[in-house]
Design a protein around this nucleic acid. Structure first.
Lengths: 174, 174
DNA sequence: GGAGAGTACATCGGACACGAGGTATCGCAT
DNA sequence: ATGCGATACCTCGTGTCCGATGTACTCTCC
Protein backbone atom coordinates (compact mmCIF):
# COMPACT_ATOMS: atom_id res chain seq x y z
CA UNK A 1 0.00 0.00 0.00
CA UNK A 2 2.81 2.33 0.89
CA UNK A 3 4.71 1.36 -2.22
CA UNK A 4 1.62 1.93 -4.32
CA UNK A 5 1.21 5.40 -2.88
CA UNK A 6 4.85 6.24 -3.57
CA UNK A 7 4.61 5.08 -7.16
CA UNK A 8 1.29 6.85 -7.57
CA UNK A 9 2.45 10.23 -6.35
CA UNK A 10 5.68 10.06 -8.33
CA UNK A 11 3.77 9.19 -11.50
CA UNK A 12 2.60 12.78 -11.66
CA UNK A 13 5.79 14.56 -10.72
CA UNK A 14 9.23 13.92 -9.17
CA UNK A 15 9.26 14.61 -5.45
CA UNK A 16 11.70 14.25 -2.60
CA UNK A 17 11.04 11.97 0.34
CA UNK A 18 9.91 14.59 2.76
CA UNK A 19 7.32 16.01 0.38
CA UNK A 20 6.19 12.51 -0.48
CA UNK A 21 5.63 11.87 3.17
CA UNK A 22 3.43 14.94 3.49
CA UNK A 23 1.26 13.85 0.58
CA UNK A 24 0.93 10.31 1.86
CA UNK A 25 0.05 11.67 5.29
CA UNK A 26 -2.69 13.79 3.73
CA UNK A 27 -4.04 10.77 1.86
CA UNK A 28 -4.03 8.08 4.52
CA UNK A 29 -2.32 9.62 7.53
CA UNK A 30 -5.41 10.34 9.59
CA UNK A 31 -6.08 6.62 9.62
CA UNK A 32 -2.60 5.16 9.60
CA UNK A 33 0.27 7.60 9.94
CA UNK A 34 3.38 6.85 7.91
CA UNK A 35 6.54 6.72 9.99
CA UNK A 36 9.71 8.04 8.38
CA UNK A 37 11.39 4.82 9.35
CA UNK A 38 8.89 3.05 7.12
CA UNK A 39 9.01 5.48 4.23
CA UNK A 40 12.76 5.74 3.69
CA UNK A 41 13.39 1.99 3.61
CA UNK A 42 10.46 1.65 1.20
CA UNK A 43 12.02 4.24 -1.09
CA UNK A 44 15.29 2.35 -0.93
CA UNK A 45 13.54 -0.89 -1.83
CA UNK A 46 11.88 0.64 -4.84
CA UNK A 47 15.14 2.23 -5.91
CA UNK A 48 17.00 -1.06 -5.64
CA UNK A 49 14.27 -2.70 -7.70
CA UNK A 50 14.98 -0.14 -10.41
CA UNK A 51 11.54 1.44 -10.16
CA UNK A 52 12.77 4.88 -9.25
CA UNK A 53 15.93 6.94 -9.54
CA UNK A 54 17.23 9.66 -7.27
CA UNK A 55 19.15 12.82 -8.03
CA UNK A 56 20.59 14.91 -5.24
CA UNK A 57 19.81 18.61 -5.15
CA UNK A 58 21.06 21.19 -2.68
CA UNK A 59 18.32 21.50 -0.06
CA UNK A 60 16.40 24.76 -0.10
CA UNK A 61 16.51 25.15 3.66
CA UNK A 62 18.16 22.12 5.19
CA UNK A 63 19.87 18.87 4.23
CA UNK A 64 20.29 18.09 0.52
CA UNK A 65 17.16 16.72 -1.10
CA UNK A 66 16.97 13.46 -2.91
CA UNK A 67 14.57 14.06 -5.73
CA UNK A 68 12.87 10.84 -6.75
CA UNK A 69 11.77 10.13 -10.31
CA UNK A 70 9.95 7.08 -11.62
CA UNK A 71 11.84 5.06 -14.20
CA UNK A 72 10.04 3.50 -17.17
CA UNK A 73 9.94 0.24 -15.21
CA UNK A 74 8.44 2.15 -12.31
CA UNK A 75 5.69 3.59 -14.50
CA UNK A 76 4.97 0.14 -15.88
CA UNK A 77 4.95 -1.36 -12.41
CA UNK A 78 2.39 1.16 -11.18
CA UNK A 79 0.10 0.41 -14.11
CA UNK A 80 0.52 -3.30 -13.48
CA UNK A 81 -0.30 -2.95 -9.79
CA UNK A 82 -3.35 -0.85 -10.61
CA UNK A 83 -4.58 -3.18 -13.32
CA UNK A 84 -4.13 -6.33 -11.24
CA UNK A 85 -4.50 -5.45 -7.57
CA UNK A 86 -4.00 -8.21 -5.04
CA UNK A 87 -7.11 -9.44 -3.26
CA UNK A 88 -5.94 -7.51 -0.22
CA UNK A 89 -6.04 -4.28 -2.17
CA UNK A 90 -9.65 -4.89 -3.10
CA UNK A 91 -10.97 -5.97 0.29
CA UNK A 92 -9.12 -3.75 2.74
CA UNK A 93 -10.67 -0.30 2.68
CA UNK A 94 -7.39 1.46 3.35
CA UNK A 95 -5.67 -0.27 0.49
CA UNK A 96 -8.66 0.10 -1.78
CA UNK A 97 -8.74 3.85 -1.22
CA UNK A 98 -5.12 4.01 -2.26
CA UNK A 99 -5.89 2.11 -5.43
CA UNK A 100 -8.79 4.47 -6.14
CA UNK A 101 -6.64 7.53 -5.54
CA UNK A 102 -4.38 6.55 -8.42
CA UNK A 103 -6.67 4.57 -10.68
CA UNK A 104 -6.80 7.41 -13.20
CA UNK A 105 -3.18 6.57 -14.06
CA UNK A 106 -4.48 3.43 -15.70
CA UNK A 107 -5.47 5.26 -18.85
CA UNK A 108 -7.80 2.66 -20.20
CA UNK A 109 -11.47 2.86 -19.29
CA UNK A 110 -12.00 -0.89 -19.72
CA UNK A 111 -9.16 -1.66 -17.32
CA UNK A 112 -10.49 0.83 -14.80
CA UNK A 113 -13.97 -0.64 -15.05
CA UNK A 114 -12.56 -4.12 -14.53
CA UNK A 115 -10.95 -3.05 -11.27
CA UNK A 116 -14.14 -1.40 -10.08
CA UNK A 117 -16.03 -4.56 -10.95
CA UNK A 118 -13.75 -6.57 -8.71
CA UNK A 119 -14.58 -4.27 -5.80
CA UNK A 120 -18.25 -4.48 -6.74
CA UNK A 121 -18.14 -8.28 -6.71
CA UNK A 122 -16.50 -8.21 -3.30
CA UNK A 123 -19.11 -5.87 -1.83
CA UNK A 124 -21.90 -7.96 -3.31
CA UNK A 125 -20.69 -11.11 -1.57
CA UNK A 126 -23.01 -11.77 1.34
CA UNK A 127 -20.69 -11.03 4.25
CA UNK A 128 -21.72 -11.16 7.83
CA UNK A 129 -19.79 -10.52 10.97
CA UNK A 130 -21.54 -12.71 13.48
CA UNK A 131 -22.93 -16.17 13.29
CA UNK A 132 -25.19 -18.38 15.34
CA UNK A 133 -23.70 -21.68 14.26
CA UNK A 134 -23.85 -21.39 10.48
CA UNK A 135 -26.67 -18.90 10.29
CA UNK A 136 -25.54 -15.31 9.82
CA UNK A 137 -27.11 -12.85 12.21
CA UNK A 138 -28.80 -9.66 11.05
CA UNK A 139 -28.52 -6.38 12.95
CA UNK A 140 -32.08 -6.67 14.24
CA UNK A 141 -31.32 -9.98 15.90
CA UNK A 142 -28.50 -8.68 18.05
CA UNK A 143 -28.99 -7.53 21.61
CA UNK A 144 -25.66 -5.85 21.75
CA UNK A 145 -26.09 -2.21 20.64
CA UNK A 146 -22.44 -1.99 19.57
CA UNK A 147 -22.57 -4.98 17.30
CA UNK A 148 -25.84 -3.68 15.94
CA UNK A 149 -24.17 -0.37 15.21
CA UNK A 150 -21.28 -2.12 13.58
CA UNK A 151 -23.62 -3.91 11.18
CA UNK A 152 -25.67 -0.79 10.57
CA UNK A 153 -22.66 1.35 9.76
CA UNK A 154 -21.10 -1.35 7.59
CA UNK A 155 -24.33 -1.70 5.66
CA UNK A 156 -24.69 2.04 5.09
CA UNK A 157 -21.11 2.28 3.90
CA UNK A 158 -21.55 -0.59 1.58
CA UNK A 159 -24.77 0.81 0.11
CA UNK A 160 -23.16 4.17 -0.63
CA UNK A 161 -20.19 2.59 -2.29
CA UNK A 162 -22.27 0.13 -4.29
CA UNK A 163 -24.35 2.86 -5.83
CA UNK A 164 -21.28 4.90 -6.68
CA UNK A 165 -19.57 1.86 -8.19
CA UNK A 166 -22.57 0.97 -10.35
CA UNK A 167 -22.90 4.52 -11.63
CA UNK A 168 -19.24 4.83 -12.40
CA UNK A 169 -18.95 1.48 -14.11
CA UNK A 170 -21.93 2.38 -16.25
CA UNK A 171 -20.37 5.64 -17.31
CA UNK A 172 -17.01 4.00 -18.03
CA UNK A 173 -18.73 1.38 -20.17
CA UNK A 174 -21.06 3.73 -21.95
CA UNK B 1 -6.17 -6.10 16.81
CA UNK B 2 -5.71 -9.83 16.63
CA UNK B 3 -4.89 -10.02 20.31
CA UNK B 4 -7.96 -7.95 21.12
CA UNK B 5 -10.15 -10.32 19.12
CA UNK B 6 -8.68 -13.34 20.89
CA UNK B 7 -9.26 -11.82 24.31
CA UNK B 8 -12.73 -10.68 23.26
CA UNK B 9 -13.94 -14.05 22.07
CA UNK B 10 -12.48 -15.89 25.04
CA UNK B 11 -14.15 -13.47 27.44
CA UNK B 12 -17.46 -15.15 26.65
CA UNK B 13 -16.35 -18.74 26.63
CA UNK B 14 -13.24 -20.92 26.49
CA UNK B 15 -12.40 -21.98 22.95
CA UNK B 16 -9.65 -23.87 21.20
CA UNK B 17 -7.45 -22.25 18.57
CA UNK B 18 -9.18 -23.70 15.57
CA UNK B 19 -12.61 -22.51 16.67
CA UNK B 20 -11.15 -19.14 17.58
CA UNK B 21 -9.82 -18.85 14.08
CA UNK B 22 -13.23 -19.51 12.59
CA UNK B 23 -14.81 -16.80 14.71
CA UNK B 24 -12.12 -14.28 13.89
CA UNK B 25 -12.45 -15.13 10.22
CA UNK B 26 -16.18 -14.46 10.42
CA UNK B 27 -15.57 -11.13 12.12
CA UNK B 28 -12.78 -9.64 10.06
CA UNK B 29 -11.74 -12.37 7.64
CA UNK B 30 -13.48 -11.01 4.58
CA UNK B 31 -11.28 -7.94 4.86
CA UNK B 32 -8.09 -9.37 6.26
CA UNK B 33 -7.87 -13.13 6.57
CA UNK B 34 -6.08 -14.47 9.63
CA UNK B 35 -3.29 -16.91 8.81
CA UNK B 36 -2.78 -19.79 11.22
CA UNK B 37 0.86 -18.84 11.35
CA UNK B 38 -0.25 -15.53 12.81
CA UNK B 39 -2.86 -16.87 15.19
CA UNK B 40 -0.88 -19.58 16.95
CA UNK B 41 2.11 -17.39 17.80
CA UNK B 42 -0.32 -14.74 19.06
CA UNK B 43 -1.95 -17.30 21.36
CA UNK B 44 1.48 -18.30 22.60
CA UNK B 45 2.35 -14.66 23.32
CA UNK B 46 -0.81 -14.13 25.31
CA UNK B 47 -0.24 -17.35 27.18
CA UNK B 48 3.32 -16.38 28.07
CA UNK B 49 2.05 -13.01 29.26
CA UNK B 50 -0.22 -14.88 31.65
CA UNK B 51 -3.42 -13.64 30.01
CA UNK B 52 -4.71 -17.07 29.10
CA UNK B 53 -4.27 -20.67 30.15
CA UNK B 54 -4.60 -23.82 28.13
CA UNK B 55 -5.87 -27.26 29.03
CA UNK B 56 -5.48 -30.16 26.65
CA UNK B 57 -8.53 -32.19 25.74
CA UNK B 58 -8.70 -35.25 23.50
CA UNK B 59 -9.70 -33.98 20.07
CA UNK B 60 -13.19 -34.89 18.96
CA UNK B 61 -12.11 -35.88 15.48
CA UNK B 62 -8.44 -35.13 15.10
CA UNK B 63 -5.44 -33.86 17.05
CA UNK B 64 -5.91 -33.03 20.75
CA UNK B 65 -7.47 -29.64 21.35
CA UNK B 66 -5.91 -26.97 23.44
CA UNK B 67 -8.81 -25.27 25.11
CA UNK B 68 -7.96 -21.69 25.96
CA UNK B 69 -9.37 -19.89 28.97
CA UNK B 70 -8.84 -16.27 29.98
CA UNK B 71 -7.13 -15.79 33.32
CA UNK B 72 -8.19 -13.01 35.68
CA UNK B 73 -5.30 -10.93 34.30
CA UNK B 74 -6.58 -11.65 30.81
CA UNK B 75 -10.07 -10.43 31.70
CA UNK B 76 -8.59 -7.30 33.23
CA UNK B 77 -6.36 -6.75 30.23
CA UNK B 78 -9.31 -6.92 27.85
CA UNK B 79 -11.24 -4.37 29.88
CA UNK B 80 -8.18 -2.15 29.98
CA UNK B 81 -7.66 -2.37 26.22
CA UNK B 82 -11.32 -1.60 25.63
CA UNK B 83 -11.40 1.29 28.06
CA UNK B 84 -8.22 2.89 26.74
CA UNK B 85 -7.81 1.98 23.10
CA UNK B 86 -4.70 3.21 21.33
CA UNK B 87 -5.18 5.98 18.80
CA UNK B 88 -4.75 3.35 16.10
CA UNK B 89 -7.73 1.44 17.39
CA UNK B 90 -9.89 4.52 17.10
CA UNK B 91 -8.81 5.70 13.67
CA UNK B 92 -8.36 2.51 11.71
CA UNK B 93 -11.74 1.16 10.71
CA UNK B 94 -10.67 -2.47 10.96
CA UNK B 95 -9.36 -2.03 14.45
CA UNK B 96 -12.29 0.12 15.47
CA UNK B 97 -14.75 -2.53 14.37
CA UNK B 98 -12.94 -5.01 16.56
CA UNK B 99 -13.20 -2.67 19.52
CA UNK B 100 -16.92 -2.21 18.84
CA UNK B 101 -17.48 -5.93 18.57
CA UNK B 102 -16.38 -6.40 22.16
CA UNK B 103 -17.21 -3.07 23.76
CA UNK B 104 -20.16 -4.60 25.62
CA UNK B 105 -17.62 -6.40 27.81
CA UNK B 106 -16.80 -3.07 29.33
CA UNK B 107 -19.76 -3.20 31.64
CA UNK B 108 -19.88 0.45 32.50
CA UNK B 109 -22.01 2.74 30.35
CA UNK B 110 -19.88 5.79 31.12
CA UNK B 111 -16.73 4.02 29.97
CA UNK B 112 -18.43 2.81 26.82
CA UNK B 113 -19.69 6.31 26.07
CA UNK B 114 -16.18 7.69 26.59
CA UNK B 115 -14.79 5.34 23.96
CA UNK B 116 -17.55 6.23 21.49
CA UNK B 117 -16.84 9.90 22.14
CA UNK B 118 -13.23 9.39 21.14
CA UNK B 119 -14.35 7.92 17.83
CA UNK B 120 -16.83 10.77 17.47
CA UNK B 121 -14.10 13.35 18.03
CA UNK B 122 -11.94 11.66 15.43
CA UNK B 123 -14.71 11.63 12.82
CA UNK B 124 -15.52 15.25 13.54
CA UNK B 125 -11.96 16.36 12.82
CA UNK B 126 -11.96 18.00 9.41
CA UNK B 127 -10.03 15.42 7.41
CA UNK B 128 -9.34 15.73 3.75
CA UNK B 129 -7.50 13.45 1.41
CA UNK B 130 -6.21 15.86 -1.20
CA UNK B 131 -4.74 19.28 -0.95
CA UNK B 132 -3.91 22.12 -3.28
CA UNK B 133 -1.04 23.54 -1.28
CA UNK B 134 -2.65 24.00 2.10
CA UNK B 135 -6.22 24.23 0.96
CA UNK B 136 -8.18 21.00 1.25
CA UNK B 137 -10.07 20.04 -1.89
CA UNK B 138 -13.75 19.12 -1.88
CA UNK B 139 -15.18 16.37 -4.02
CA UNK B 140 -16.77 18.88 -6.39
CA UNK B 141 -13.40 20.40 -7.19
CA UNK B 142 -11.82 17.21 -8.41
CA UNK B 143 -11.70 16.25 -12.08
CA UNK B 144 -10.74 12.70 -11.31
CA UNK B 145 -13.92 10.61 -10.97
CA UNK B 146 -12.16 8.06 -8.77
CA UNK B 147 -10.92 10.57 -6.25
CA UNK B 148 -14.37 12.16 -6.30
CA UNK B 149 -15.86 8.77 -5.56
CA UNK B 150 -13.40 8.22 -2.79
CA UNK B 151 -14.44 11.47 -1.10
CA UNK B 152 -18.12 10.81 -1.71
CA UNK B 153 -17.98 7.33 -0.23
CA UNK B 154 -15.87 8.45 2.72
CA UNK B 155 -18.33 11.24 3.45
CA UNK B 156 -21.36 8.95 3.30
CA UNK B 157 -19.67 6.46 5.60
CA UNK B 158 -18.75 9.12 8.03
CA UNK B 159 -22.26 10.60 8.08
CA UNK B 160 -23.84 7.24 8.80
CA UNK B 161 -21.45 6.50 11.61
CA UNK B 162 -21.72 9.98 13.11
CA UNK B 163 -25.46 9.75 13.43
CA UNK B 164 -25.26 6.29 14.96
CA UNK B 165 -22.59 7.46 17.40
CA UNK B 166 -24.59 10.49 18.50
CA UNK B 167 -27.73 8.43 19.05
CA UNK B 168 -25.91 5.76 20.98
CA UNK B 169 -23.97 8.16 23.16
CA UNK B 170 -27.23 9.94 23.99
CA UNK B 171 -28.88 6.70 25.02
CA UNK B 172 -25.86 5.63 27.10
CA UNK B 173 -25.86 8.99 28.87
CA UNK B 174 -29.58 9.30 29.34
C1' DG C 1 22.54 33.93 22.14
C1' DG C 2 19.81 30.11 23.00
C1' DA C 3 15.65 27.21 22.78
C1' DG C 4 12.40 25.17 19.88
C1' DA C 5 10.15 24.03 15.61
C1' DG C 6 10.56 22.77 10.95
C1' DT C 7 13.23 20.71 7.03
C1' DA C 8 15.59 16.59 5.38
C1' DC C 9 17.65 12.25 5.65
C1' DA C 10 19.08 7.84 7.80
C1' DT C 11 19.94 3.44 10.89
C1' DC C 12 18.91 -0.07 14.27
C1' DG C 13 16.47 -3.49 16.97
C1' DG C 14 12.29 -5.58 18.24
C1' DA C 15 7.73 -6.95 17.18
C1' DC C 16 4.63 -8.73 14.14
C1' DA C 17 2.67 -10.86 9.87
C1' DC C 18 2.54 -14.29 6.40
C1' DG C 19 3.42 -18.12 3.07
C1' DA C 20 5.30 -22.52 2.78
C1' DG C 21 5.73 -26.47 4.78
C1' DG C 22 5.19 -30.27 8.30
C1' DT C 23 2.54 -33.73 11.51
C1' DA C 24 -1.45 -36.47 12.48
C1' DT C 25 -6.34 -38.30 12.47
C1' DC C 26 -10.87 -39.13 10.53
C1' DG C 27 -14.61 -39.74 7.04
C1' DC C 28 -16.08 -39.87 2.33
C1' DA C 29 -15.85 -40.60 -2.34
C1' DT C 30 -13.51 -42.84 -6.29
C1' DA D 1 -6.45 -48.53 -1.64
C1' DT D 2 -5.97 -44.07 -2.28
C1' DG D 3 -6.63 -39.47 -2.49
C1' DC D 4 -9.09 -35.43 -0.67
C1' DG D 5 -10.96 -32.33 2.56
C1' DA D 6 -11.77 -31.17 7.19
C1' DT D 7 -10.00 -30.98 11.91
C1' DA D 8 -6.14 -29.54 14.83
C1' DC D 9 -1.72 -27.95 15.83
C1' DC D 10 3.06 -26.13 14.93
C1' DT D 11 7.84 -24.04 13.03
C1' DC D 12 10.82 -21.51 10.09
C1' DG D 13 12.41 -17.87 7.09
C1' DT D 14 11.51 -13.62 5.01
C1' DG D 15 9.77 -9.33 4.91
C1' DT D 16 7.71 -5.26 6.76
C1' DC D 17 6.58 -1.77 10.21
C1' DC D 18 7.64 1.21 13.78
C1' DG D 19 9.65 3.76 17.81
C1' DA D 20 13.86 5.48 19.29
C1' DT D 21 17.67 7.80 18.09
C1' DG D 22 21.07 10.43 15.44
C1' DT D 23 22.82 14.11 12.18
C1' DA D 24 22.66 18.68 10.45
C1' DC D 25 20.94 22.95 8.82
C1' DT D 26 17.62 27.22 9.05
C1' DC D 27 14.33 30.35 10.94
C1' DT D 28 11.70 32.53 14.55
C1' DC D 29 10.88 34.09 18.99
C1' DC D 30 12.27 35.71 23.37
Amino acid sequence: MLELAILGFLYDAPLHGYELRKRITALTGHVRPVAESTLYPAIKRLEQAGLLARTTQPGSVAAPRHVLTLTEEGRGELRRRLAEPARHDITDENRWFTVLAFLRHLDDAAGQAAVLRRRLAFLEEPASFFYDGDRSLRAEELDDPFRRGLLTVARATSRAELSWLRDTIRSLDG
